[in-house]
Design a protein around this nucleic acid. Structure first.
Lengths: 258, 258
DNA sequence: ATTTATATGATTGACTCCAATCATATAAAT
DNA sequence: ATTTATATGATTGGAGTCAATCATATAAAT
């Protein structure tokens, strides 16, 4: 029997809500919870999937509520091995009791991964990346802070003028940044507002360290970030020779190779 | 054929990672991605489920990576119906182009749920609750901002002195708060640092509105928040009679019942 | 009031998934 | 080197799931 449009809509909203809460529900559960037949449950699920509210699975469905950071995660997978090695090298630079800033990029996220498993404690960590925040929140010995500002879900980062203002609320001992490209002149990134926050942080940190994997050497990016003279260390998997060949020459104490 | 223990472990780690990235994977996909038979895939999945790394589903599995806000979600379920009705009443108070603050509590989260589906646009939303943030990020017509400060994963909120400072970066047209208890004297909450942020926001908003479901009437909470005279509106499912019986009398224009 | 559109539940045959069982290859132990 | 333990893939019967189809009841349109 036909039923009022609003009734259907309300039920589907409720179903989306249920899936958001339970993450996964088998079809039979959907039927009993909503008091509907399998046929209707299936139809509701396919409708919700068409609207990108859920993902169907064989025998049930999964809520999309939590599928954030998808594009960020894909980038995490790129050069994952190099990032891991760089991250472990970077861990050596972190002393207990430091106030540590972790940048929003994927390379720096690998440091968060490593820090979550173990490393110097206690630490005060500040970040503008919410994936980093969640990786390190609830880790014993780490006090986790986030910048305020506009939240951009795609990149899982907080940016904008308010983020710059809020970045000035802390004094950092050590800031770890990523970059999209490096050249003889210095470090580059793709987004102006990302660079704006990074520069603000760089101004109030005692030590500035960049983590850059070798794939960024040939790359190019539109926004200039910092000249080599402004950074304290570069951690990379590229050898000093390769760097020199690209016109990048750093004093020995500034280069950490892995 | 038996295979080295480490090989198995590495493969299962990879599988967990895969599920964290993809949220859901059907069994066949697991097989092809890892190059293993169904039987082994099943065995890997049951092993991972035993370790609480994933959740099995019929025909595949779901990653648990994102099951962080569980305790918050449980509280969301309490008086869910009343909260939904209150939220819809609160929606009426929001005009397009306002700068809206959304408090960290569960009742206010229901407003975010409602706003995500539809409501006045455009809006600038500021919140200290990361679940609210994620609900409303990437919604067309809503610019989403978060406070900076210490991130407490359990409650999914940002608190502390930095949060207060950062709250002052905005001028709010309307602030929606929740409270844990109400009495003749006013509104109460359980945590001092939550109240501290709420008071800071209350000082820089044109209009202060509280959303409180009837179950909070008999409740008690240790930290005093605000007297009734400091708020502009109370949205509740409790009737004026019941409120009066508890010694709470508000002018008509300040009370929204639903 | 009559017609049209559609939301629902039941049925069905094809398809998929699952747990149990078995044979086998190979790592680990002796 | 031999034995033991176990990780793997194949098979199979049983159970569960799916898409398609149909009849029906009722909301919405006329």
């Amino acid at each position: 029997m036909k039923v009022a449009y609003e009734v259907v809509k309300a039920r589907r909203d409720q179903l989306a809500q249920l899936l958001a809460e339970h993450q996964y529900l088998p079809l039979a559960e959907v039927c009993t919870r909503l008091g509907i037949s399998e046929a209707t449950a299936r139809r509701d699920l396919t409708a919700l999937e068409r609207d990108h509210a859920i993902t169907r699975t064989y025998g049930g469905a999964v809520g999309d509520y939590n599928r954030r950071f998808d594009s960020f995660r894909e980038r995490l997978a790129q050069s994952a091995d190099a990032k891991r090695r760089i991250a472990h090298a970077a861990l050596e630079l972190i002393k207990p009791r430091t106030v540590l800033y972790l940048d929003g990029g994927t390379t720096v996220h690998a440091v968060a991964d490593a820090l979550a498993i173990g490393g110097p404690r206690p630490l005060t960590v500040v970040t503008n990346n919410l994936m980093v925040a969640e990786r390190l929140s609830d880790v014993d010995g780490i006090e986790l802070n986030v910048l305020g500002g506009q939240y951009l879900r795609r990149q899982a980062v907080i940016l904008g003028p308010k983020a710059q203002t809020s970045a000035k609320l802390w004094r950092y001992d050590l800031a770890l940044f990523g970059a999209e490209a490096i050249s003889a002149r210095g470090l580059w990134n793709t987004q102006a507002d990302v660079v704006a926050v990074e520069r603000t942080v760089a101004k109030s940190t005692k030590s500035t360290v960049f983590l850059v994997d070798a794939s960024k050497l040939g790359a190019s990016a539109p926004v200039f970030l910092l000249p080599w003279t402004d950074i304290d260390k570069l951690v990379t998997d590229a050898s000093a020779d390769v760097l020199a060949h690209a016109g990048i020459v750093l004093p020995n104490r500034s280069l950490v190779t892995c």
